[in-house]
Amino acid sequence: MANPWAGEVALELNGTPHVLKLTLGALAELEDQLAAGSLVELVQRFESGAFSSSDVLALVCAGLRGGGWTGQQADLLTADIAGGPVKAARVAAQLLAQAFTVPGGQHDGV
């Protein structure tokens, strides 16, 4: 079960539930893959609705890998994602939101 307070999101892939999380390593890997200059640009694309299916795929893959999945992005091209592309896009948006939101609106001085 995913813990949203820990930045986790759940997704069923090929009939198996997975926990996704954007760890620092997953974010660094994601940043290397994206056609954006920064993660802030990616967040802005999602906020404006201007994200692409490649953005969704990269985010879902990074989240899966941050959650311990050992697959590759190419494995997702033929995977059965419960809820389809719409669910994948929602999960990607949730991952971004939870990775950059402090729980409870607390400010840690950073």
Score class of each variant (00 low, 15 high):
Gln106Lys: 12
Gly15Ser: 05
Val86Met: 00
Leu77His: 08
Gly7Asn: 13
Ala88Pro: 04
Ala36Gly: 04
Gly63Val: 05
Ala88Tyr: 00
Phe100Asp: 05
Leu96Trp: 10
Leu96Met: 04
Asp80Ile: 10
Ser54Ile: 05
Pro17Ala: 13
Gly84Ala: 02
Gly66Ile: 00
Leu30His: 03
Pro17Glu: 13
Gly109Arg: 11
Leu96Gly: 00
Leu95Lys: 04
Val40Ile: 12
Leu11Ser: 05
Thr70Gln: 15
Leu20Arg: 03
Leu64Cys: 04
Asp108Gln: 08
Pro17Asp: 10
Leu77Met: 15
Leu39Trp: 05
Gly105Thr: 01
Ala93Ile: 13
Leu76Asn: 02
Gly15Trp: 03
Asn14Cys: 15
Glu41Ala: 13
Glu8Phe: 13
Leu20Phe: 08
Gly83Thr: 02
Leu76Pro: 01
Gly67Tyr: 01
Pro103Ile: 01
Val110His: 10
Leu30Lys: 04
Ser53Arg: 14
Glu47Met: 11
Arg90Gln: 15
Asp75Trp: 01
Asp75Ser: 13
Arg90Asn: 15
Cys61His: 15
Gly37Phe: 09
Pro17Asn: 12
Val9Tyr: 04
Gln72Glu: 15
Leu64Met: 10
Arg65Met: 07
Glu29His: 07
Gly63Ala: 07
Leu57Arg: 10
Pro17Cys: 10
Gln106Cys: 03
Ile81Trp: 00
Thr23Ile: 06
Cys61Ile: 04
Ala92Leu: 01
Leu42Asp: 11
Leu24Ala: 11
Gly84His: 02
Gln98Arg: 15
Leu95Gln: 03
Leu76Val: 10
Glu41Leu: 14
Gly66Thr: 01
Met1Ser: 12
Gly15Pro: 01
Asn14His: 09
Gly7Tyr: 09
Ala74Glu: 15
Asp32Gln: 08
Ala89Met: 06
Pro103Ala: 04
Asp55Met: 12
Thr23Tyr: 09
Ser54Val: 10
Ser52Leu: 06
Glu41Val: 06
Phe46Ser: 07
Trp69Ala: 02
Gln98Lys: 12
Leu11Lys: 07
Val86Tyr: 00
Met1Glu: 12
Leu96Arg: 00
Trp5Glu: 08
Leu59Ile: 09
Phe51His: 03
Asp55Pro: 09
Ala82Gly: 02
Gly67Thr: 13
Ala62Phe: 01
Val102Lys: 11
Gln98Ala: 11
Pro103Met: 08
Ala74Cys: 14
Leu30Phe: 04
Ala74Gly: 10
Phe51Gln: 02
Lys21Trp: 02
Glu47Tyr: 09
Ala97Phe: 09
Phe100Arg: 06
Ala35Met: 08
Ala82Asp: 06
Thr16Ser: 05
Ala93Tyr: 07
Arg65Phe: 07
Pro103Lys: 04
Ala58Thr: 03
Gln106Gly: 07
Leu22Lys: 08
Ala79Glu: 15
Gln94Thr: 01
Ala26Thr: 00
Ala92Val: 07
Glu47Arg: 14
Glu47Pro: 13
Leu13Lys: 11
Thr101Ser: 13
Ala74Trp: 05
Gly104Phe: 09
Thr23Leu: 09
Gly83Met: 13
Leu24Ile: 12
Gly49Thr: 00
Ser48Phe: 14
Ala2Val: 04
Ser38Val: 04
Ala97Ser: 11
Val110Arg: 12
Leu59Met: 08
Val86Glu: 00
Leu77Trp: 10
Glu29Gly: 09
